[in-house]
Amino acid sequence: MVVEVKNLVKRYKELIALDHFNMEVEEGEILGLLGPNGCGKTTAINCILSLLNYDKGEIRVFGEKMTPNSYDIKREIGLVPQEVSVFENLTVIENTDYFCGLYIDDKNKRKQYVEEAIEFVGLKDYTKFYPKKLSGGLKRRLNIACGIAHKPKLIFLDEPTVAVDVQSRNFILNGIEKLNDEGSTIIYTTHYLEEAERLCKRIIIMDKGRGLVSGTNEELKSMISTSEKIVVGFTEIEDETVQNMKNILHVMDIEKAGEDYIIKFENGFNNLANLMNFIEENQLVYTKLQSQLPTLNDVFLELTGKELRD
């Protein structure tokens, strides 16, 4: 196990930021911490890195207890903090070299690593630029380069795509997949569910400092009662017919959303075919018919009663 967190409790006076939080990260995986802003993702990372005191619990990294003096463990870790954390008056190459040099003493090896990191994040044409001259997306890439240049075994990426353009976001996500392919274990925090779905082999959904559920993408989706949603729009439909629709096999609930109806189905197959039969039998004319598989947002909604982006 690369990281083990047991019963972690962190309080800020009256506020409980982490409430008996548990986490296990296996070697080579990308673990996603998914949850809304303020749910405790960054606090969890800062506690694991021993930057923050905590009230209760146990943290082990690479099998050893993590303390502020665990310099050998820190040598194997890379951090990409949520805020861009670079020297404003050092160039791209100087920043990357400075932070890489805190881990790598050998000059030639460091030079090679720095060049690779800059190429990896696509900043080769900007090596002499100061951060203030870079766009938000490019700054984020520099932030990543400074955190991964020393080729760490374990990388913490704390919301690395916040406030970046689509192009940079895709670049960053591709890069993270590549880092994982090269053998790095990654802990990735985000409140963007698409990112978690795309990248993470395992996901912990967090809210109010607690880990609500954890599992693979499929496992999480299978935990909720809704397995399929079909959105359908009719030219005309009577209330009685809508009530009759509830008798279709596996239908759990029907919601009106504007002019459309969202029909939620329990686990089961042939939901769309069954609905089509009903439409034919009742001679209904539909303007829209769209099948949606559940998303992590549905999982979050069912677990907490609120949208992930609330």
Binding site: L49, Y71, P81, L102, Y103, G147
Partner: peptide, 17 residues
């Protein structure tokens, strides 16, 4: 200091004393 600057957060996560 990690509680005073972003650089501090990064520096304190490295093996630099």
């Amino acid at each position: 200091q990690a509680n005073l600057s972003n650089i501090g957060v990064r520096v304190n996560s490295t093996p630099l004393k």
